[in-house]
Design a binder for these strands. Structure first.
Lengths: 188, 188
DNA sequence: CCATTTCCGCTACCTTAGTTGCGTAAATCG
DNA sequence: CGATTTACGCAACTAAGGTAGCGGAAATGG
């Protein structure tokens, strides 16, 4: 009941994603042509569309396959951890073309299926920040009147806001200011 | 030196924007077809493209023309003002299809000209919040270690973050929590 | 060996954003 | 009035995302 019919060529996925990566590195999301990707991969366009039902889903699969977790090793100092994590996210976001992120957000808002994938992609970081904020709260670094969930939004949200809306740069210094604004100055 | 040549038909802009509004109300950004807009407006597509060099710019012009300033009358209570303003922005954002905002952000990130228009559109709200935050600071409601600019990002950024990234709803209650998180609990 | 099933490639097609070229209409300048 | 200038409509075109149909290739089941 399992392997009926001709099996899928495992090399297709690999070659297509490689070609897509090559294309997106050069021209970004808009510059990626599905026709060219198929041609570069030596694959018919119909075969490509059998695996990924839209250009957006192809790009999501590409990003997902490239995904390496944000480097982060927890210490015993929640403030340091939070600063490090927010800085790492900011750096990671800054290294991605803003248009690409905006296109993913647009595709996510338009097609529910893509939305799931994209949100899963970004939720991981959100959860990581949530975890560290919880530790900071346990350590008494968070004021009582502050909701941890809101605090996470106020740490991560401004990064996307700058990237997509105001267009201002995402510097490590800015990340530090975000944490400082929320936790107060160092008391050492 | 002024009115040389055939003058532009003033009715074109009006009819096109009306048709575009009609289209975008139904199918959003993706559902708006330039061909159909031109046809509905009784205008050649080339004439349309002479005025707005891309679909994105047409939509920006449409949004700009529809723009009504966020209702807001300042009182003598900066905290109340801030809550009211953030709530108003949240309500306004929530009433717009997320895909439309994401598409504008994507177009803004891709084409510099569109970026200017879109950013000008959104910068107004940012400035309004900045002004109220300044008043709050004068009133001693903002802690010394907090940068007002960062604080504005932490009030407005989470709204876009929720709308575009996490997909969570923008409620008035959430807006209130944002302000509360940043200014501390009421001390009445 | 043969029928069935699934995958693949190919060609042709649809829709839409955006462009080009051309003939023509409406204005101004001399 | 005539030349010039600019706007308009029309038709044809390109490029790109996405789909449909067909013939054939590679597997499994009998």
């Amino acid at each position: 009941m399992v392997g009926r019919g001709r099996p899928r060529d495992a090399g297709v996925e690999q070659r297509v994603l490689a070609a897509a990566l090559n294309e997106i590195r050069q021209g970004g999301y808009a510059g990626l042509s599905v026709d060219r990707v198929a041609e570069q991969a030596g694959v018919a366009k119909t075969t490509l569309y059998r695996r990924w039902p839209s250009k957006a889903e192809l790009v999501v699969a590409l990003i997902t396959s490239l995904r390496e977790d944000v480097p982060f090793e927890p210490t015993d100092d929640p403030r340091r951890d939070l600063t490090g994590l927010v800085t790492a996210i900011a750096t990671n976001l800054a290294s991605t073309p803003p248009a690409l992120i905006a296109d993913l957000a647009a595709a996510a808002a338009r097609e529910p299926r893509v939305g799931e994938s994209v949100r899963a992609l970004w939720a991981e970081r959100h959860r990581a920040v949530t975890a560290v904020v919880a530790k900071a709260q346990d350590a008494g670094l968070v004021l009582d009147h502050v909701s941890p969930a809101v605090l996470v939004d106020q740490l991560v949200g401004p990064l996307y806001y700058r990237l997509l809306v105001t267009g201002e740069p995402l510097t490590p210094d800015y990340a530090r200011k975000l944490v400082r604004s929320v936790l107060g100055p160092e008391e050492s």
